[in-house]
Design a protein around this nucleic acid. Sequence first.
RNA 1: GGCGACGUGGCCGAGGGGCUAGGCAGAGGACUGCAAAUCCUCGUACGGCGGUUCGAAUCCGCCCGUCGCCUCCA
Length: 482
Amino acid sequence: MSDLHIYNTLTRKKEKFEPITEGFVGMYVCGPTVYSDPHLGHAKSYVSFDVINRYFRYLGYKVRYVQNITDVGHLTDDADQGEDKLQKQARLEQLEPMEIAEKYTYKYFKEMDQLNILRPDISPRASGHITEQIQMVEQLIEKDHAYVADGNVYFDVTSDEEYGKLSGRDLEEQEAGVRVETAEDKRHPSDFALWKKADEGHIMKWPSPWSLGYPGWHIECSVMSTKYLGENFDIHGGGIDNQFPHHECEIAQSENAHDQPFANYWMHNNMVTLNGQKMGKSLGNAISLHEFFSGDHELLNESWEPEVIRFFLLQSHYRSPTDFSEEALSAARSGLKNLHQIVKTIDDAEDGEGEPFDLESCRSDIESRLNDDFNTAQAIGQIFEHLRPLRSQIEDGNIPSNIDEVKAFIRAMIDDVFGLWPSKSGGDEELTNSLVEILLEIRSEARENKNFELADKIRDDLESLGVKVMDKPGGTKFRIDN
RNA sequence: GGCGACGUGGCCGAGGGGCUAGGCAGAGGACUGCAAAUCCUCGUACGGCGGUUCGAAUCCGCCCGUCGCCUCCA
């Protein structure tokens, strides 16, 4: 597959990607509601879209990647009832809602940074776009797609004959199955809030033509995507759990307000489970990313490096569910370590005069997998497939004549696209290397004198410091693992 | 109850009518003072029962099981 194809949730098919403007990609991905610690689900979603973002750039597209920060309007309860999530957390932590937003926004970025996720080009806050949200609600009222009821404004789903097209639902069936109480001032149970009047005690509220209140959850994404990407843009992504109602509502609002298609391609990543179970606070298995990184949770036996989690996620497809277990992570950790060693051997090779490496077939085998709806799992398979023999060739001293070109490609793919380049070792690298070499010289002498006791002691002691010693045919080599 | 996805060798995980995925773990061998590392070789797997077909893990039906959405979640 030489052209990039994307599975579009809207059409339930893989489609060739054709940008609205040649050479440019506008991508909006639903960001976090910043009221608690980031967890594995965030990791899966944002690692997936990170590689998508990176691959577009690799292909030469100029990407504008927008990801919102939801800091208002997301209610704890269903059917447009209940408390604002941030306000509730603020009460629990005895902080201002905006302190909660800032605190968890910082945490979010910090942990996404650790996962080596490139930051979005724009991270707009919902609370910073209240004016625009009010304007859009006004537009919808003018066009008779929304109505005011006692200071609340609801979107009228019956005014949109396409409502349900993303999630494949129809309104009549929905009604029968509705098992949540709905706000009594709605005309139709599936109508959703565009603006809510603030209850007494509600802290985050703004004046509007209808009431002192706050925006509904869905409207922020419609507004911010449009503001930064236009009324019609290329890609809208997010977790599959947001397909309904969130994304369905976004489409309804945007297309009825603007009378044109909203996003051309809808992409949804699948969910994460932990030991086969959905994560949830009530199940006691909600482990935050921070806890994974530190190992500080009763369900964890050890800590897991962000890079291992990233690699593990990329070994499955973004549209498949991912089950986390320490056994699976452990296998991923070994695999990643091997990949790092392979890459390092290649990257250290210089001045080749041997048979050239078949870079074109390597490149096309990897790219074709990514072009097929970003199949990172297969692409990683191809990386191993091509790079293992290359390492062998190099270790045999037969360094390919096109080694520089090969190195550039590997860096572009593994570092720039996958974000899995070997981690940088700290300073003093040269000194450490020299010291280890001195020890190994002593060890060589000991071995020549058949003083294996001393030789093995040096090796064991170095090993306990994370320095692996390997006696290869061409001489002793070492590797520092940390 | 409605909608949808999935069930692949010891584990993870792609694929998807006949053609090697890959990773981890494991076995044997080469190499080694012993190791480690590396290299070579090895698994004939697709939930169950039927059906379609020359041929099914891949298509169809039923059943079993898991998961998700329908309610906040990425």
